[in-house]
Simulated scan of single mutants.
Amino acid sequence: MSGTRIHPTAIIEAGAEIGDGAQIGPFCIVGPQVRLGPNAILRSHVVLQGHTTIGEGVRIFPFAAIGNDPQHLKYQGEETRLVIGRNCLIREHVTMNPGTVQGRAETTVGDNCSFFTGAHVAHDCHLGSNVTLINNVMLAGHCTVGDFATIAGGSGIHQFTRIGHHAYIGGLAAVEGDVIPFGMVLGNRAYLSGLNVIGMKRAGFNREAIRNVRKAYRMLFSDDSTFRENIEEVETEFPSDPLVQDLLGFIRAGGDRAICFPRSVRPG
């Protein structure tokens, strides 16, 4: 293991795979089914358990508990997995659980994600790349979070909820409905408050793309017609716009939760 450094107080159980250049600090525990990628860093007091794969360059801070049994009352020790992508940042006291056989049997996290102090990723969640969970975010089981989504501190996300890509969840929000791509939600219970235009600009979307999504948003949530009629009108208005079509695809795909609507608009 070229360049690998393991502190003498760390416990690496037989069967664990440690990538080249990994650094494992004091009092860390790495379980027998763990695969730790090259150049990953465990600062100290990190616990990795279960069938857990950690990607290259991941940095994990003290007292994070990754891969322990899912918090699911029907879990009976089945072999399920947690897979974390490359270059993720996992700060203090973060918890992540593997999947369950009642779900997809796997929890997955993409590349370049950031998880700040006390954030929780529950069983069977699927997170894209470049996702950010700020302090004490509670992500319940079976949630899906799209690329570049940001969930601000103290927010709670109901199980089976879908968060679209480039969405923004405001601090302390209680989210119990699906959040459209580029959507911004606030409050308890959370409501759709507009679009994450700042996030779109930071992601490099041009003015025309943002303008089209904003117009589509106003049309979708107009009270002049039913939501179904509004969807058809947006489809007609933007038949070839990739971002608008992606937004419509998210809505049409549906899920276990209803779409999160603005306060002033009734679903219908």
Rank of each mutant, 00 (worst) to 15 (best):
V109M: 13
D111P: 09
F116P: 04
G118H: 00
H120E: 12
V121N: 14
H123Q: 14
D124E: 09
H126F: 03
L127C: 13
S129M: 12
L133F: 15
I134P: 03
N135K: 02
N135Q: 09
V137I: 12
L139R: 07
L139G: 05
A140D: 14
A140H: 11
G141R: 14
H142M: 08
H142E: 15
C143K: 11
C143H: 01
G146C: 09
G146I: 02
F148G: 02
A149V: 05
T150Y: 06
T150W: 02
A152C: 15
G154W: 03
S155T: 10
I157D: 09
H158C: 07
T161N: 12
R162W: 01
I163S: 05
G164I: 05
H165M: 11
H166Q: 06
H166V: 07
G171S: 14
G171W: 03
L172P: 00
A173S: 15
E176L: 03
E176K: 13
D178A: 12
V179A: 06
I180M: 15
F182M: 08
V185E: 04
G187M: 02
G187H: 02
R189V: 01
Y191H: 12
G194N: 04
V197D: 02
V197Y: 09
I198R: 12
M200P: 05
M200F: 10
K201P: 04
R202C: 13
F205C: 02
N206H: 14
R207K: 15
R207Q: 11
A209M: 07
I210C: 05
R211D: 10
V213W: 03
K215W: 06
A216N: 05
R218P: 01
M219I: 15
M219Y: 01
L220Y: 02
L220R: 05
F221R: 10
S222W: 06
D224L: 08
S225I: 00
N230H: 07
E235I: 01
T236P: 00
F238T: 04
F238I: 07
P239W: 01
S240E: 14
